[in-house]
Amino acid sequence: MLSSESIKRIDREIAKYPGDQKRSAVMSTLAIAQEEKGWLATETMDFVAEYLDMPPIAVYEVATFYNMYDLEPLGKYKLTVCTNLPCALSGGNNAADHLKQKLGIGFNQTTPDGMFTLKEGECMGSCGDAPVLLVNNRRMCSFMSNDEIDQLLQELNK
């Protein structure tokens, strides 16, 4: 269900917790699964439940509670822009507007070519680098002026 590479990473996470507390690794396991699959289908979550000896419902609870998990298919690149107050004071909304205009989509929409999904994010703890955006939950981009955004889109479009 998941690649041996992912399983290896998951096992490293499980080893961090006491032997009888395997479910502590559920957050990282879901994150690794999402990284491989792009999103969390029910079958993926069921696999995680089985692998960690958890009831499937307990895995769904976690996956639906934390907002970086995606329970629906989305574009190849998920761009999450922070628009919270400190970022908004330093151009966060401009960055979001520029992305909407460039991509021709609004928040929670995906471009017709399936390349980009745009999301509005909450505080990423990087307010000093505003405007900030996150690519696929992993790559943080700082000081995103319109030019920087154009360059990023160009790079990802390649």
Binding site: K16, Y17, S24, M27, S28, L30, A31, F65, Y66, N67, M68, Y69, E122, C123, N137
Partner: peptide, 10 residues
């Protein structure tokens, strides 16, 4: 000591 990675919940 181990790191635990959160996933988006204030």
């Amino acid at each position: 000591l181990y790191n635990h990675h959160g996933y988006g919940a204030y």
